[in-house]
Design a protein around this nucleic acid. Structure first.
Lengths: 149, 149
DNA sequence: TCCAACTGGTTTCAACTTGAAACCGCTTGA
DNA sequence: TCAAGCGGTTTCAAGTTGAAACCAGTTGGA
C-alpha cells in the first residue's frame, strides 16, 4: 500500500524540513506571503493553482505553524493568512533558492526579478556558509556528525 | 487534462528553483551526495526509496546538470553519480534548510545530526541575509523588484 | 433594499505520480 | 563456475494533483 513516505522522525533536520516544505507549492505560497499577499483569492490568482490545492496547502502551512489565520486587516468578516515567526524564518531559505536560481537557471541576458533592500535599493549580498569564526567554508570542509543511535 | 504545473519559464528565480529541486527526494539525494554517496545502491539503501523513483530522480538531476555520471572511482564496469559545480552550489540551500529544521522542527532535548567544519569540529555559523554592505537584513527591509513585462 | 458579483472554500472525477515487488541482464568475487 | 550484487525496468495498485462545477455567506452599488 504505497502511501507517502515521511521523514517526520528523521534525525536529519534537512529531511524534516523537506518533509514540511518540500513540495511544489508551499514555498511559493510563503514567497507570496513575504510579498504581502494575505488573502485566499489573491494567492490563488497570483499563483494560478487550483483552489482545492491552495486550500489544502494553506491548511498544512497553518498546521505546521508557518502561517496563522488572523482577522482581516480592515475588520471585515473575512480572515487572512499571516506569516508566523517560524514562517518569517524561512526567509533565508527563499533567498538561498533565489540566488541559486539566478546563478544557474537563467540565461545570461534573461531578465528575472531581483531582491533589493529597501534602504539602498541594492541587491542583497550573496549568502555564504562560514565556520564558527566567520571564515568561508567550502562544502568539502564540512561534514555531518550523525547522532548516536 | 491535469498534468504537473511547471514554472520553468517564470521570471522569479525562486519559482524556477522550486521547479527543479522542489520535491520530496531530490534534495535528499543531493544531501547524500555531499556525504560522499555516489552509487545507485548506496543511495537506495540510505534513503529507503523505491528503485524506480530513485532511477527517475537521478535521471532528472543529471538532466538538470546537478549530478553527472562518471566512471567508477576504482575503474570497474559500473559508474557513479557525482555532484557538478551547479550541484555543489546547492550547499547553501541545504545548510539553510538544516538550520531552519534545527530551530523549528525538533524538541529542545531531541537529538539531531550536526554540520561541523572539518578543521575545528565546530558547528557552521548561522546563515544571515545581509544588504550590500553586509548589514543584517530583516525580511521587512527587503522587497522584490519585478522585471518589466 | 435588492441583487449581482465576489469570497473562501468543498466536491467530484479523471489524469498523473508514487511506491512495492517482481523481474532481468551484466559484473564481481570466492 | 556460480551465487550474490549491481543498476536498473516493468507492472500495477493506491495516492495525489488539477480543472471545473458548485455553494453558502459577504459586500457593494443602484
Amino acid at each position: 500500500m504505497p502511501q507517502r513516505v515521511t521523514h517526520e522522525t528523521a534525525q536529519c533536520p534537512v529531511a524534516r524540513a523537506v518533509d514540511v516544505i518540500g513540495d511544489r507549492w508551499s514555498l511559493l505560497i510563503v514567497r507570496d506571503a513575504f510579498d504581502g499577499i494575505r488573502r485566499f483569492n489573491d494567492f490563488q490568482r497570483n499563483l494560478g493553482l487550483a483552489k482545492n490545492i491552495l486550500s489544502s496547502r494553506l491548511r498544512e502551512l497553518v498546521t505546521h505553524g508557518i502561517l496563522e489565520i488572523v482577522p482581516a486587516a480592515e475588520g471585515g468578516a473575512y480572515h487572512e493568512y499571516a506569516l508566523t515567526q517560524k514562517g518569517r524564518d524561512l526567509f533565508v531559505i527563499l533567498v538561498s533558492l533565489r540566488q541559486w536560481g539566478e546563478d544557474h537557471l537563467f540565461e545570461d541576458a534573461e531578465p528575472h526579478s531581483v531582491l533589493l533592500d529597501t534602504k539602498n535599493n541594492k541587491p542583497v549580498r550573496k549568502l555564504e556558509v562560514t565556520d564558527a569564526k566567520g571564515r568561508l567554508l567550502d562544502p568539502s570542509e564540512a561534514f555531518v556528525r550523525k547522532v548516536a543511535s
